[in-house]
């Protein structure tokens, strides 16, 4: 098992580095000149050239990538110019390891930006995750147990409605009606725990997390319903019944253990995917998380921020993958990694 994890982590790291390279390749292949975006209105060719050099965009992509990768492990300085460092050390920004680059647009190390935005996205993702797991899995179980009844059809049908609408529509609808028109919940605004305590933090998260959760709930209801129904058809449930077990024990010990294992896999991957930022929900509720920052970075040709967020998001997804696989071996005794 340990060997398996080591292998997976090593492979994951290689994959993350490869992804950073791909992101850079795409960026360098773009017809627009990224340096132009750092130059402002009074741009001169000399200034443009100077910026390009300072940003490292004059190098071939591979050596840019090597510099970047080195920065992660040993840190870096921006701009990387020994002459400038001697003449005007105050213009050099230090970026200690793990250095994810330096954003020319916001004049800050990328890591600082991520550290600032990540809690917003992560709070949102985790809050939504908890909501959809409880509601989605719960309703899915109820629907499966009442298969074919009105309850089942109502649950599956209404879930489909939310699934069919785009996120921005649900988000805006909740925002306008629940918060602005009817005033049932306060107008959402992100407040960190440090600033406003747990209460305000949760209050701020409620609507956007609900929006995100509503989109996922439908999928989880259907998935849970399908898995529970599948397990209900398994021979081992017939055995459990034939033993004379109570229906509660059959459900909680025998049915759910089998049905929820695949859900855990999907849930882990979904959460991993969301931790790296949610673009639409953050945009709708004006939350300054990784998703929004990524969009901004991409539209302003801020390569270091783009690469940084790609790496963080990729790390979450890959980590989630590994965690889910390892978890599987814990849940299912038949699965053995070696």
């Amino acid at each position: 098992m340990f060997a398996y994890i080591v292998r997976r982590v090593a492979a994951g790291m290689v994959m993350i580095l490869a992804m950073s390279l791909v992101t850079m390749l795409l960026f360098f292949a773009s017809p627009a000149d990224p340096a132009r975006y750092t130059c402002g209105k009074n741009c001169t060719p000399q200034l443009l050239e100077q910026n390009r050099k300072a940003l490292g965009y004059d190098q071939p992509v591979l050596s840019y990538w090597v510099d970047f990768t080195k920065g992660i492990f040993v840190g870096s300085e921006f701009p990387k110019d020994p002459a400038l460092k001697k003449s005007a050390p105050e213009t050099i920004a230090d970026c200690p390891a793990p250095c994810l680059g330096y954003s020319p647009q916001s004049s800050r190390p990328v890591r600082d930006i991520i550290v600032e935005k990540l809690p917003v996205s992560a709070s949102l993702a985790i809050a939504a995750f908890i909501m959809w797991m409880i509601a989605g899995v719960g309703l899915g179980i109820v629907a499966a147990l009442r298969k074919g009844s009105i309850v089942d059809r109502a649950i599956v049908g209404s879930a489909l409605v939310f699934y069919a609408f785009p996120t921005f529509f649900i988000g805006l609808g909740l925002y306008v009606f629940l918060a602005l028109k009817w005033g049932i919940v306060p107008v959402p605004a992100y407040t960190s725990i440090a600033d406003g305590g747990v209460g305000l933090w949760l209050q701020g998260l409620f609507l956007p997390a609900l929006t995100l959760a509503l989109v996922y709930i439908a999928g989880y209801i259907r998935l849970t319903r399908a898995f529970v129904l599948e397990v209900k058809g398994e021979d081992y449930l017939r055995t459990a019944q034939a033993k004379g077990l109570t229906s509660g024990r059959i459900l909680f010990k025998h049915t759910l253990r089998g049905a929820l294992t695949p859900i855990a896999t999907v849930a882990g991957l979904d959460l991993g995917g969301l931790l790296g930022g949610t673009i639409i929900t953050e945009q709708v509720f004006n939350y300054d998380g990784l998703g929004r920052t990524a969009v901004m970075a991409a539209t302003t040709y801020d390569l270091p921020v783009t690469v940084g967020i790609v790496l963080v998001a990729a790390t979450f997804v890959i980590t989630a993958n590994i965690v889910v696989d390892v978890l599987y071996a814990v849940i299912d005794p038949r699965v053995k990694y070696s």
Partner: peptide, 28 residues
């Protein structure tokens, strides 16, 4: 239910699928 397993018990065709894969034989 109380009679199932106590007074009338059953043996199934395929013991692999009739046993729960996640629990030990003893547990079951």
């Amino acid at each position: 239910r109380v009679m199932r397993g106590r007074d009338i018990a059953m043996i199934f065709q395929d013991p692999l699928s009739a046993l729960h894969p996640y629990y030990t034989v003893g547990n079951q």
